[in-house]
Design a protein around this nucleic acid. Structure first.
Lengths: 108, 108
DNA sequence: TGATTGGTTCGAAATTATTCGAACCAATCA
DNA sequence: TGATTGGTTCGAATAATTTCGAACCAATCA
């Protein structure tokens, strides 16, 4: 019984939609996640939300929106998951966008 | 009877919220409006939507979302309204953001 | 003045997005 | 094996957005 790995679907670079990316980034909680990941990949368990009481199903859904837009990558790692920003793909597809969003979100 | 002019409220530059701007730009129809205005101010009647059958109340609402986020300015002009992109304010508050969005939306 | 044009606002209906608990699954460790 | 940890998925409830017609308003022009 080769058990199936829980690999989640990610859009190809060429399939990323600008409006989807903008929408994913338009939520404060999701934007905060992106900012954490800007510092480098993180295990999901170490990626904290503003309110620690937020249930894991909600956290999982936030990650889903970011993943389906192509903003983050979510891959299995040991017992948990490794989250990372799709820096290169975003830069190739939408040059300068992520950088301007990150620097704009930094000074608020 | 000095009749009241229909001046609509616009957020001050310092009150603009990044997530509101991203949300406003995350809708294809609104993004298309912004792209038209990138060419310079336009009378609202000359700013066309993808589908000409869309009612004016809907068009007005699209403009409202853009205006309240601080993306566009909407001022009375003669019988109609003059729409313009708040280029300078956006650039001052979120440097590079509008430019990257516009160039990203151009190549799709 | 009256008719026309261009646009806002309101309210209701329809659509989408968010939130959360429960069920489930896979990996690790005792 | 059994218990624990970390996470996804589903379904239902709620909340937010969108859409549209109707009512309204101000400016222009006949």
């Amino acid at each position: 019984m080769t058990s199936e790995i829980t690999e989640l679907p990610h859009p190809a670079r060429s399939d990323m939609q600008l409006t989807d990316v903008l929408f994913a980034l338009s939520d404060p909680e999701r934007l905060a996640i992106v900012r954490q990941l800007a510092g480098g990949p993180l295990e999901m368990a170490q990626c904290h939300l503003s309110d620690p009481a937020i249930p894991k199903s909600t956290k999982s859904h936030l990650m889903k929106v970011l993943r389906e837009a192509g903003v983050i990558r979510n891959e299995p790692l040991g017992r948990g998951r490794r989250l990372s920003l799709r820096h290169d793909d975003l830069e190739a597809r939408f040059p300068g966008l992520l950088g301007s969003v990150l620097s704009a979100s930094a000074e608020a």
